[in-house]
Amino acid sequence: MSETLLARYADCVFWLARYVERVENLARILDVNETFSRDSRGSQNWLSIVQLFSDEKTFSARHAEASAENVLHFYVRDTDNPSSIVSGIAQARENARTLRPLISTEMWVQLNMFHNRLGALGADELSPGRRNRFFGSVKEACQTHTGITEGTLHRDQVWYFYQIGRYVERADQTTRLLDMKYHLLLPRPRDVGSPIDVSQWNALLRSAAGYHAYRRLHSGGITPAQVAGFLLLNRRFPRSVYLCIRQTEMLLAEMKARYALRGGNDAAEVLDGLRALFSTLSITEILKQGLHEFLDLVQLRLIAVSRHLSIAFFGYQPEDTLEQLQQTQ
């Protein structure tokens, strides 16, 4: 019995990991947006966050203006917005609730308390002077979750699906982060290297917790190509897209072998192609092709990986649409 895993549980644990990872990244992005959102004239532009997540339609249906208050409300406390922090943790908790027979009590209690804490969020916790502390606490709660998981989750199939979910989500989030800078805040040629431009690249690195690692590797200064190259291709940085893809591929292969699982070859094939792409292309070539187009392609392939896993292991049918894959947003 310990060797078998219910397909539905695999689905839930995959998404548990994804939702927590997603919330952590969202907190990172919102946290550094103060810096991000200043354009060359120094004024704030919170709309870029909404554009980053392609939420223009839903957002404008609820708010007339992309003010800091409105955008933060939308991405932090709005329970009707499925991609808000509150919704993400609610989803993670729902999955954890289903998984309670398999996860440790400590994992459940921490998520449950995190969820309760967000439900009791004070009115002024997102005020300008306190935002930073709040996002810090969200990041920390997500990392606590990861730590408890590391220390208590049994290393069986459940663990593999958890890890795979986490890396797939993280790869996806890093591509979005890069896309935000390149696609939405595309600097005018004369701004490149200006104090605004440099501070935005700094912010980008910081939001991925990569500032210091980058500094160690590139003592010469910050160039757009080097930052993009670092976040995409670095082999040691835990949030680089390359590392995430490599980890996913290894975990899947190891799990399939260890538990004699026949499914998952389609996903492995897509991952193999992605890895090949990342090992052969240089950042110069990627930029020449167009970074946005490249990131788009990576995102589509990651969606394909998720879909193949859903069909091979989670009990979905090949003819199910993306919306039918229960939890794909």
């Binding site: 019995m1 078998t4 895993l5 219910l6 397909a7 695999a10 027979p101 699906f161 292991f313 009990g315």
Partner: peptide, 28 residues
């Protein structure tokens, strides 16, 4: 389920074939 160490299933996890009950797992 935890105390007994058995899977907690819902109806959609089970099916009947040839008068036997089966559950859907990652391995079939």
């Amino acid at each position: 389920a935890r105390e007994m160490g058995v899977p907690l299933v819902e109806g959609r996890d089970l099916l009947v074939e040839d008068e036997r009950v089966w559950m859907r797992t990652t391995g079939g």
